[in-house]
Nucleic acid binder design. Sequence first.
DNA 1: GCATCCCGCCAGCCG
DNA 2: CGGCTGGCGGGATGC
Length: 386
Amino acid sequence: MALSSSASKESGSGHYTYCRKEKSLGLLCSNFLSLYNRDDVETIGIDDAATRLGVERRRIYDIVNVLESVGILARKAKNRYSWKGFGGIPKVLQDLKEEGLRENLNTFEGNNNTKVSDDDEDERFSNPSSSSQNDRSNPSSLKFLVSSKTDNRKEKSLGLLTQNFVKLFLCSNVNLISLDEAAKLLLGDAHDPSTMRTKVRRLYDIANVLSSMNFIEKTPHPETRKPAFRWLGMTGKFENRSASVLVLNESKKRTFGTEITNTSLKRRKVVSSVDGNMNQVMKPQLHVQVKHEILVNEVDRSNLEQDSRQSSKNYQFGPFAPVIVPKVGASENGKVKQVHDWESLDCTYRPQYHNQALKDLFVHYVEAWKSWYSEVAGKSPIQLFS
DNA sequence: GCATCCCGCCAGCCG
DNA sequence: CGGCTGGCGGGATGC
């Protein structure tokens, strides 16, 4: 009641009906990355991003928070972030891992159990400090009262959650976790179904953006069949094989721009009125802006070794990598399996434009990328099986 | 039907 | 005190 069901009218006049997938955080993240993953970018404004990507600021915060937690961005000031890029990722992950392991040893009871856990993980990340109004502080575990009153909020931030989520992978032997399990672990306690649901929602958000960067990958659990996430930051720890950086980094830098920039179609209620004509907010739909993304830079720079010696970081974060990105694994034989077929790409990314021109443009990009890719693949060990 | 997760209200925080 | 941030969970969408 109260609100009328949407999609009331539609008539065949191509009035594209709302599509949730085009609004996903993952996609938005990809677009965000393709928009700012350039070396000549050092500062990013929330408003600018929101405008360019055509979304509300709120959504930018979501993305920015997780990107920051992984070191790709750094908050510089109000409304201002600085672009750090993927170069520092390895170090950040390393730090997170150490931190996570360290935190893990905070079991007050000195029972030095050398990780006997067979499968049951009992993490004790983040300090307890129940946030329930009912203060019944468990006397037994009064670790650090770190939570400084109001900062209780920070404990629940997306950024922190992201880091803890990542630590889960980095610090445990399990590399396949379902969000439910993750939520449970990261919650430590409180089986409160409500809290769980919220936590899981957040994890979905996080998982989506991490997926878009190929840090993790969604995959059905071998047995359970239940969807779970697998870590694939830098495939195989620190393999320091020569490996010539990424395969694609020279030649011209051409990429197919991701865009799909959301139309301003809201999901919910159509709120009657104004039917028959788009009001101002409802800009004549996308258009411009679609082109400055065309020259977006490609994958991270070639020289991403700069910190310590022994670079060895040939992790391959897809720049905007559509869910399936090539696993440029630098395998010794170069037989790298390409789980890559344009079919799925197309499927994944097919935007359903209601604008023919745009659609053509999209197709164009795909084609461009395709030819470029095979071009590169042709002179490199990789081979995309036809 | 349930898993996924977008949307945006609205409470803190910060200039 | 207004605007920036971003927790939170209703409920739409996807399958």
